[in-house]
């Protein structure tokens, strides 16, 4: 029933400028179709929308453009909003479920956002690197990350223009004050699509497995004001520590203990200042670029401030 109401609210929003209908009216129409006549929900929705289109003397195109705000990707800050976007398809990923026709990353000048296109929505294919006007997409949120969903009412129009995709990376400067457990030379589950880190040779999903070695650091970067948790993948860890995966395996073999790797990493990196750039994922920053801040900062401007207070 809540699903019905959500759909009804969406439909109501689309027509609220044109028609004097209440959400309850829409719910009632949907309910009749779905629960009395056993019409599938998406068909019921289409039918109800068509009814209102007729009532309002509108055609479908007018509806789809109607009332939405054209937003930039970095402005997406709430779930369940109907918006229009002009964006480039930056990447297409392999859909993991049959219900998903396409999934990937859209970008504009202000940043990037994940998109999902449902199979049942029956929309044209998007191609990588092409720029589209996407009207009537819905925002969604999962663990603090926003995405957009293309749906049955979305219109897709290819645009003959170029978009320079900006990044939504954050940049943080600070001291590396902690390297947390689970860092260093780790083993991951080799099962397909499972990259869980093994605990004592066991995967929490697949039990005892022959793990694959990987390098990772879960670090804490602190500038005295804010704390950032940063994840360094294999490449970023090698870059930060100068220890390659091969060397790490050798160290662990010599010591008959993998923890020597994390210990050595602590010695080489803790207490140093770094500038780190990368996207955020939940509460983590994923380090794409790391630079040690080896140039001393200039005390002059702070000295001037100190004398002026």
């Amino acid at each position: 029933m809540s699903d019905l109401r959500t759909q009804a609210e969406e439909i109501h929003e689309q027509f609220s400028d044109e028609l004097d209908v209440s959400v309850d009216d829409v719910v009632e129409r949907l309910d009749t179709l779905v629960n009395e006549y056993k019409v599938p929900l998406n068909e019921a929705r289409r039918s109800v929308v068509n009814t209102y289109l007729d009532d309002a003397g509108m055609d479908r195109d007018a509806l789809q453009g109607g009332g939405n705000e054209t937003v930039q990707i970095s402005d997406i800050d709430a779930p369940e909003e109907w918006i229009d976007l002009s964006a480039k398809v930056v990447e297409l990923w392999e859909p993991r479920a049959d219900a998903v026709a396409q999934v990937g990353l859209l970008g504009d000048e202000t940043g990037t956002v994940k998109f999902t296109k449902w199979s049942k929505s029956d929309l044209p294919e998007l191609e990588e690197e092409k720029v589209y006007s996407l009207r009537n997409v819905v925002t969604d949120e999962y663990q603090g990350r926003f995405s957009v969903k293309l749906n049955r009412t979305t219109t897709i129009e290819e645009l003959d223009e170029e978009i320079e995709v900006g990044d939504d990376d954050v940049e943080i400067d600070g001291a590396l004050v902690d390297i947390q457990s689970g860092s260093g030379l780790i083993k991951r589950c080799p099962e397909e699509d499972c990259t869980r880190v093994l605990q004592n040779g066991r995967c929490s999903e697949h039990g005892e497995v022959d793990g694959e070695f990987d390098l990772r650091i879960k670090g804490v970067v602190d500038d005295g004001r804010d704390v950032h948790e940063v994840i360094f993948n294999q490449e970023a860890t090698e870059d930060l520590t100068g220890i390659t995966l091969d060397q790490a395996q050798e160290m662990a073999m010599d010591a008959l203990d993998t923890s020597v790797v994390a210990d050595e990493m602590r010695v080489k990196t803790l207490g140093r200042y770094y500038r780190i750039r990368g996207p955020t994922l939940g509460r983590y920053v994923l380090a794409n670029e790391t630079e040690e801040l080896s140039e001393p900062t200039d005390p002059e401007s702070v000295l001037i401030k100190a004398r002026s207070i």
Binding site: G224, T297, P299, L303
Partner: peptide, 17 residues
């Protein structure tokens, strides 16, 4: 690592101010 020391002094000065 002289740079880290100098950076810390400047940073600590800023936070104290």
């Amino acid at each position: 690592n002289e740079a880290a020391y100098r950076r810390w002094v400047v940073e600590t000065a800023e936070r104290t101010l």
